[in-house]
Amino acid sequence: MRVYLRLLLAGIRTQSAYPLAMLAGLVANTAFGLLKTGILFAVVDSGGGTVAGYTLGTMSAYVWLSQGMLGSVNMWGGSEIATRIKTGDIAIDFMRPVDVQAAAVVTEVGRGLFALLPRGLPSLVIGALVVGMSLPTTPVQYLLGVASLLIGITVSHATAYLVTTMGFWLTETRGITVLYMALSGLFAGLFTPIWLFPEWLQVLAQATPFPSTMMYPVDVLSGRTTGLDALVLLGVQLCWLAVVWIGGHALTRAGRQKLEVQGG
């Protein structure tokens, strides 16, 4: 466990080496947050002040919490391990006395956790000051929200790892990555809450791990989902974490048996 803790800290230190990139990310978060606020506030107003259970305050919380998570949740599907698979450097990783999957995911989670400080929290503060929002008032809800957030970040990177293992069999994985980006952004609730979707599309979204990466943590953190319902969402997140982790483990073992060095 000490090895993986060090890998987590290494991920944090790696991300901290790019302060200007973090600042640029914060500027982008703020710009798109204001744009989303204007659009979604118009949707709420058109519904007479509430739509799908969202008021202006809770919709604002959704916007700024989701924007704040952008630097921590993997929505683009790529990772360092994808490059190592393509170049063949993954063969060296297999020789190390650590689990390749766990090491890769833990390192990426460390990077995501650091991004919460220069991008996540400032985005939330800017939203609260400029627009205002409704947030929970009980400590228990915040504890549940933090737990959901941590699980969501882990699920996102574990899912991205699962996708990158396709590189063991494919020479080029950019097509899969683009597809991942399109589906993850839509079904995670990045563009709009999935609860505004038609019922059939909500069902389809919830049949994927993507809502567990962003939508569910936002619902719990914002106080839209409380009590037993919040615990249910955490349970769903943990189930998806187990599914994608087991899938990634299985594909890693299979890929190790059929490793084909690409280039390098």
Rank of each mutant, 00 (worst) to 15 (best):
W169A: 15
T192S: 13
R6I: 13
Q202G: 13
A230W: 03
L70Y: 05
W245D: 03
S212C: 15
V155F: 06
L5M: 14
T87G: 07
V100I: 12
T154M: 08
M214P: 06
L35M: 14
Y216I: 11
V140C: 14
L196V: 04
T192L: 15
L8T: 00
V125P: 08
L9H: 03
G78T: 06
L70M: 13
K258S: 13
D229C: 10
L186C: 01
W169M: 11
S134V: 09
A10R: 02
I12P: 04
R13W: 06
T159Y: 07
S72E: 00
L204F: 13
T226E: 15
S148M: 06
G57C: 12
P97G: 12
I126M: 11
R13P: 06
L221H: 03
T159V: 12
E108C: 13
W245L: 05
G167M: 03
T252D: 05
A160W: 05
L221D: 06
V220C: 11
G57Q: 10
P122N: 10
W200T: 10
S156D: 11
R111P: 05
L20P: 06
C239E: 03
L150R: 04
G235W: 03
T213W: 01
N29G: 07
G189D: 03
L23C: 05
M133P: 08
I194E: 04
F168P: 01
M215H: 12
G248N: 06
A91R: 02
G227F: 09
A103W: 04
P139I: 12
W76R: 05
I246Q: 00
G33I: 05
F191D: 05
V140L: 15
F187P: 02
T137P: 07
M95K: 02
F94T: 00
F41D: 14
A254L: 15
T173Y: 04
T50M: 15
R6F: 13
G88D: 01
L183W: 02
W76P: 02
R224N: 13
I176Y: 07
K36E: 15
